[in-house]
Write a protein that binds this DNA or RNA. Structure first.
Lengths: 231, 231
DNA sequence: ACAACAAGTAACATAATTATGACAACCTAA
DNA sequence: TTAGGTTGTCATAATTATGTTACTTGTTGT
């Protein structure tokens, strides 16, 4: 895991999305470039070597498919498509994009990262079956493959949102995470959600942590700033 | 698992298929190279030693038959043909030319792997990633050769699809498998099937598991993500 | 102690996801 | 061809998750 950070080119004309995606990628330690149109993207891709491309399907001028086709003549690096709606990229197109992947638009940081990792892994030789990726902090282990959170007293049963929330907190264990950041991490870039909603979910999360026999105080509140998972 | 993984050369001009096949092979621990035309394939085959060739019959330039004929002068490694059409003619011709097996195109990961394994086993030097053809998890044993699933209470009678589904789940026992992944594994890369259909099959699978005297809860549902076989 | 604000809590309506049963299309073997 | 089994899809029911509001409790600074 000490390799050079992968280079990723993000192509989208919506600043809100590129900002969100590059934020997420950089947070994970990837090296992300951003352009807002296909032509520039093609030029950049010709100059530099990228390990992965993230393309919006709908682009002004050259669209994502067209760009992908042209990229294919230059490189074999995988392509991850973003699409506005689930329907936009249905099965037929799904076949055309072959081994690449796509992500329908209301997606969260963690889902994005999961796809990116999967695609990069595919390119770089084999992946590691059995190597489960999990984090353990303060006696709680979060297993991303099994989608479980557990400790010595057994499993904590969590809803999807609670799981994402806990994951975000644990990934930044020991650091304060603001409600805005939590929303962005666990909800997605287009959260039309009140920051107060986070409080409710924190409460539910704590209840379940307590209910499973662990210390609900693991999720600390930092008044005025947000929450922090105890490290 | 301590032997050198078998080397396989995949020749097809459709990226969606090569991606799918190499994904499947690598997942099983094989070492797969990919080329999209017969000429390159022949060059590669002359340089390296491959334990198996997977050829599309329809190729630009030199077609699969021709390539097979020429490969035969170089090597005795088995050849598996892929064909778009499911015509007897292709099959007969393919086998006459010196092909060893034949797979019509809407095929699934597991069907492909089964053929590959069979062919490699036949060859003298071949190795067996996942040498045993059965998995046992949580009291259920899945025998891939016999195509049976059984435990202490006896056999569970399954339809082909149910068997594939259970196999996919058991191979990733303890990990969540998304509906998309299940479709890819058990249906094939060309699934024009609704992800919702998986639910129905899961239900049928559970019914049969229960009917045979086992715990239908072995197939756990992970709300929001997919299903998981209890490990 | 009080005002002003931040966070915790409970209740509720709505939304989303999954389970289930029924059906028609499809095979395949007799 | 028929009978029997298999498969994909849909409509509906059951279940569970989510977001918001209103209200309570706690904290901070004067």
């Amino acid at each position: 895991m000490t390799e050079t950070p992968s280079r990723i080119l993000v192509v989208d004309d919506e600043p809100s999305i590129t900002e969100f995606v590059s934020y997420a990628l950089k947070k994970e330690g990837y090296n992300a470039d951003v352009v807002d149109n296909g032509e520039e993207a093609f030029v950049l891709a010709s100059k530099n070597k990228y390990d992965l491309f993230i393309l919006d399907i709908m682009l002004p001028g050259m669209d994502g498919y067209e760009l992908c086709r042209r990229l294919r003549s230059k490189t074999t690096s995988p392509v991850l498509f973003l699409s506005a709606r689930d329907t936009e990229l249905d099965k037929v197109v799904g076949l055309e994009i072959g081994g690449d992947d796509y992500l329908a638009k209301p997606f969260g940081v963690r889902e994005l990262i999961a796809r990116v990792r999967a695609l990069l892994r595919r390119g770089a030789g084999g992946d590691f079956p059995g190597a489960s990726n999990s984090i353990t902090v303060s006696g709680i282990t979060l297993d991303e493959d099994a989608h479980t959170a557990a400790g010595d007293n057994g499993e904590i049963d969590l809803t999807p949102r609670e799981f994402e929330l806990l994951a975000s907190l644990m990934k930044s264990a020991g650091k304060v995470v603001s409600r805005e950041d939590l929303l962005r991490d666990a909800w997605g870039w287009e959260y039309l959600t009140e920051t107060k909603t986070v409080d409710t979910h924190i409460k539910r999360l704590r209840d379940k942590i307590a209910g499973a026999g662990y210390d609900p105080g693991l999720v600390e509140t930092v008044r005025g700033y947000g929450y922090r998972f105890h490290a």
